[in-house]
């Protein structure tokens, strides 16, 4: 058994991939809880697509090293735009987000299609390359994760109050617009942290699935976060083990990033089934 479950991680690149996915799993577990409470799933989806042109332009301008800066700039700009759009309510925010999402994504595709190795680059940007994560990328991810989790620990109770009762939070004198901006920027930072490992599209799974799974199983926020972290980490581990095993022992090449996402989704489906069964049993 250990040949399948543990030995793969004696390879340095697999160990780095596992560490990267563990950090992202915990990060996703914590942040997805706030995405769930504030119903930001669509906003998070928009962010993942608007960071894409930042990644591409950063890469074109400065190579691998430009990706992080490009993603960071695009992510923070989108977070600000999201906050303003949803606060002003002049346009239906759904439509505004959809326009922003598709426009920015197209910009990214246009820029990347001017490159010679267009399709392979595109695949990398969209789906990441967790198996070639470098030591410095690991450090970047860890630093961003630390910033995000620390911020959430510090202003978590205010964010929960705002999510539960926005008018009440304003009535109590809290700067609700500023709280919204901070949360949007934190979600953007998660996208930036995860972009090189799992790509701009797959990171959406990390921002939604862990807490959605936890919420199906428990009613308390602390437990939702805890289960979310476990799901995030186990999803990363299972995805790596399965994609590694399939290619080494089965001769089938599976994208590790996509396999991680499928592992996360499998956890969600299991939780959904469990919640369904429990409802039936309780109803009896």
């Amino acid at each position: 058994m250990s040949a399948y479950l543990i030995d793969p991680f004696s390879l340095p690149f697999m160990a780095r991939a596992l560490l990267e996915l563990c950090i992202l799993g915990v990060l996703g577990g914590v942040v997805s809880a706030f995405v769930l409470l504030r119903k930001l799933a669509f906003a998070a989806d928009t962010l993942t697509h608007t960071v894409f042109p930042g990644v591409v332009i950063g890469f074109v301008a400065a190579g691998e090293g430009g990706i992080f800066v490009g993603a960071l700039i695009a992510g923070v700009l989108t977070a600000v735009a999201l906050t303003v759009l949803t606060a002003a309510r002049r346009v239906s925010s759904d439509a505004a987000l959809a326009v922003l999402l598709t426009a920015m994504f197209s910009v990214g595709v246009v820029v990347v299609s001017r490159q010679t190795e267009y399709t392979s680059d595109l695949t990398t940007f969209l789906f990441g390359h967790v198996l070639t994560v470098s030591g410095s990328q690991l450090v970047q991810t860890a630093v961003l994760a630390a910033i995000v989790v620390l911020t959430l620990v510090v202003i978590g109770k205010e964010l929960v109050l705002r999510a539960f009762d926005g008018v009440g939070a304003r009535a109590a004198g809290y700067p609700v617009a500023a709280l919204d901006l901070v949360l949007n920027v934190l979600v953007a930072l998660v996208v930036v942290a995860a972009v090189q490992a799992v790509g701009t599209v797959l990171v959406i799974a990390l921002l939604i699935v862990p807490a959605a799974t936890g919420r199906l199983l428990v009613d308390r926020l602390g437990l939702v976060v805890g289960i979310g972290c476990v799901v995030g980490v186990l999803g990363g581990y299972a995805g790596l083990v399965i994609s590694f095993g399939a290619s080494v022992y089965g001769g089938v090449r599976l994208s590790s990033g996509a396999t991680v996402v499928l592992a996360l989704v499998a956890a969600y489906v299991l939780a959904l089934a469990y919640a369904g069964v429990r409802r039936v049993v309780v109803a009896r």
């Binding site: 409470l37 929960v160 539960f164 009762d165 008018v167 428990v218 009613d219 308390r220 926020l221 939702v224």
Partner: peptide, 9 residues
């Protein structure tokens, strides 16, 4: 006016 699904006691 408040979310009935919110995980809070």
């Amino acid at each position: 006016t408040l979310d009935e699904d919110f995980p809070i006691s």
